[in-house]
């Protein structure tokens, strides 16, 4: 399978690794300093608001990763360039982990703030569903041995799943207005003050750098797998 990545691009991906790791660690250090020490506790929520600094970036990237996954699947269908199939597969595990993190940290944040560990509102239910969409996508790749076939089926499912998310969100929203008129809007963060923007921004940046780091590592795994396969074929 010809990956159609130029050697220069592969070189960049490889060489970037130490730089990415270092900058991720630096960014998280600054992020932690600002989140835990430098920023003031919220007037209402107190210190528990600090969880927002890890919950919100995780949720954002969980959704962004799935958009990349679905978008990459669409591009794969159009161009049949294998790099898109690889991008989709590489981002899947990362997205799944961030969805899990956002669900868990959200739940932990919810308990002291709103009194409940979980509530079946539109956002949370959609996030839970998103977790299962990732899971299904990953399992599908593992269960189909013919890799070519696997790309096609996973891509189709990724796109169907992507369409399903807004449907679910809309449905649960609609259902909730019927059954629970006063729903707590869980992700409505406290009115963003500049002192909260800074830690949020830094943590988002740090999480993004982390995501790129792991994503590049996974890309390299695919590239090497491909290389090894071709060497073994030649033999």
């Amino acid at each position: 399978m010809n990956l159609r990545l130029t050697n220069k691009q592969i070189n960049i991906i490889e060489k970037a690794n130490p730089f990415l790791i270092v900058s991720t660690i630096v960014a998280f250090t600054f992020g932690l300093y600002f989140s835990l020490l430098q920023s003031p506790p919220d007037y209402i929520q107190g210190d528990s608001m600090r969880i927002m600094y890890i919950h919100v970036p995780s949720a954002w990237f969980a959704l962004m990763a799935y958009t990349i996954l679905a978008g990459s699947s669409v591009l794969w269908f159009i161009t049949r360039n294998p790099i898109f199939s690889i991008i989709a597969r590489s981002i899947a595990q990362i997205g799944m982990i961030f969805t899990l993190i956002s669900l868990v940290t959200g739940s932990i944040w919810g308990k002291p703030t709103w009194g409940v560990w979980w509530v079946w509102d539109a956002r949370l239910t959609s996030m839970l569903l998103l977790f299962f969409l990732y899971l299904a996508y990953i399992f599908l790749w593992q269960s189909i041995t013919n890799k070519d076939l696997a790309s096609k089926i996973s891509a189709a499912l990724a796109i169907v799943g992507f369409v399903n998310i807004p449907i679910i969100k809309f449905s649960v929203d609609w259902w909730n207005t019927l059954h629970q008129p006063a729903t707590i809007s869980k992700l409505s963060s406290p009115s963003i003050d500049i002192s909260m923007m800074v830690p949020l921004f830094i943590m988002t940046l740090a999480t993004f750098l982390f995501l790129i780091t792991v994503f590049f590592i996974r890309l390299r795994i695919e590239i090497l797998d491909n290389k090894i396969l071709r060497i073994r074929e030649v033999k």
Partner: peptide
Amino acid sequence: GAKRTIFLKAVIVIPLFVPFLIF
């Protein structure tokens, strides 16, 4: 082609059922 993967298919299908179940 996938044989005996009914639970995997259930994981795929049930999220797709959810809009119907909700309404």
